[in-house]
Each structure stands twice: as structure tokens, then as C-alpha cells.
Design a binder for these strands. Structure first.
Lengths: 94, 94
DNA sequence: ATTCTAGTTAGAAAGTTTTCGAAATAGGAG
DNA sequence: CTCCTATTTCGAAAACTTTCTAACTAGAAT
């Protein structure tokens, strides 16, 4: 199940912050690391997980690696959340 | 952030299965445990986490405890996913 | 009041995840 | 070719999670 990987990927706050940062456009690994209180090795580990989950893609240019968000992978998660009833009018019966 | 708790709660496959089961209506802790290859204590632990995240509510009746799904908590997660661009037409530029 | 049943809590073992420092790699620049 | 810079990989420590068994609580039934 791809969803398990997707959800694991976004269950970590550091990885969510990385995704939030990539909303504004592709960034190099170094740029990303500079935004956080984490060592480059740690950020690299998170980027690897996000990449494996298909949530980001990488592009090499010069000796930088640029990472870019790929939100299409969230479709399966959205469907599941809707199947549980998320997104409905949650009016109280009152 | 409530989202962190919500995402942690649904990042575990056992807990997702419990939520899937509760789609069909409230169930007692024992009924839930019976559906899985886990000891009652383990299921109780998962139910506690889901309850703390606000994803389920409990109702006591006789000496049973019935658990019920509360999907409204997913709204925040949905908004965040949409803010990342999930749910858009992911047509290739081709 | 004792006993039975449904479920929870406590504490420990096993497994997984996150973080880091140090060493390794991959290219571009000199 | 050697050096430099950006980033990854390795290996270990620390922190967290999941699961279990055993002991406990709450209430219903006798």
C-alpha cells in the first residue's frame, strides 16, 4: 500500500516543514537544511524518505540537487479520508 | 498543532484498520479486538491514541465501551493537503 | 458480598525512527 | 590531476513506539 508510506512520510513534523517550504518552489538540499535546526545529514535522511514516498522529486544541476514537491501522490490519502466521512457537513443534529 | 496528533494517529496501519472498521458504526472494544490479530491490551492502547487525537469517541453502556468514529477532526489535514496542491488536476503539461 | 466479564493500566522487551559526527562520493573549477 | 563544495552514506546513540503478559478496576449478575 502506497498510502502507508505517504502517511508515514507526512507524520513527521520536520518532513511536513520541508513540504511546506517546497510549496514556494524547488530548493537545493542546502537551502532546505539552512531553514531548519537540523544537520545536513539529518535533512538528507528526511529528503530520502520523502523521495521514496514519491512526495518530492530531485533534479541535479551543477553540484546542487534541487528538490521539488509532487502533490499528486496525496490523491490516495484524500480518497481514504473522504471514505471515512471527512469533508462532510459536520452539522450537529441540534 | 492538532494536526500532528491526527497524522501520527493515522500513520499506524492497525489504527487505520480500526477507523475503517468504525465506518460501519460503533463497536465495543471487544468487537474491535476480535477483528485483529492483536491482544486486547494492544487494541486498548491504539484506542487510547485515537481517542486522544479526537478521532473516536467512547460511550459506556452496561459493561461495554462502545467506540465511534469522529471524522470531523480530519478537516485540518484536508486543508493542509489542499494547500500543498493535492486534489488539483494533475495533467502533465504534454 | 462474591464472582464474572469487559476493558484498562503498568512495566518490560523488541523494534523502529530520528539525530548526529565522521567518512565517502560526485561533480565542477582551477 | 588535485582541490573544493554540496550532498549522501555509515554507524552508533538516544528517543520513541508497538506489543505483550500480568495485575488491576468498574460494573453487572448472582
Amino acid at each position: 500500500m502506497a498510502m502507508s508510506e505517504t502517511l508515514k512520510a507526512i507524520s513527521d513534523p520536520a518532513r511536513r516543514q520541508i513540504l511546506n517550504l517546497l510549496k514556494t518552489g524547488p530548493q537545493s538540499a542546502g537551502d532546505i537544511a539552512a531553514h531548519f535546526d537540523l544537520k545536513a545529514a539529518t535533512v538528507s535522511y528526511h529528503l530520502k524518505l520523502l523521495k521514496e514516498a514519491g512526495l518530492i522529486s530531485e533534479r541535479r544541476e551543477k553540484n546542487f540537487i534541487y528538490y521539488d514537491l509532487n502533490a499528486s501522490v496525496f490523491e490516495e490519502v484524500l480518497s481514504w479520508l473522504y471514505s471515512l466521512g471527512a469533508g462532510e457537513n459536520n452539522d450537529d443534529k441540534k
